[in-house]
């Protein structure tokens, strides 16, 4: 059973709050909160996020894909995961 975009967003949000935003009010992190340009994810934490996504969803990221085009917001991340899973068939 495939997870909805909503579910993916919720899972990633939980991970981000726990890993990089300890103590933060969950409501402050919206689906359009800028993560990379907003200073929440730096290069190291972006790599950690990608590792998490790869393990959790069985997808792979190429080096050039690790960028704000795909990972800037929770919405972007969920879309990227959905696209990758669709491509895998």
């Amino acid at each position: 059973m495939s997870e909805s975009t909503q579910d993916i967003q919720a899972t990633v949000k939980e991970y981000l709050l726990e890993a990089f935003l300890p103590g933060e009010d969950p409501d402050s992190l919206a689906e359009d909160t800028p993560l990379i340009s907003g200073g929440i994810l730096d290069s190291i934490s972006t790599v950690k996020l990608v590792t998490f996504l790869e393990e959790k969803y069985g997808v792979e990221f190429q080096a050039h894909e690790i960028s704000s085009d795909n990972l800037e917001t929770l919405a972007d991340i969920a879309n990227t995961i959905q696209t990758k899973r669709a491509a895998k068939g």
Partner: peptide, 19 residues
Amino acid sequence: PSLIAMKQFCSKKLPLYMI
């Protein structure tokens, strides 16, 4: 101010590695 708000604020003033 929330952590996210502060990080966003800093990201407008500082390079990411200084946040």
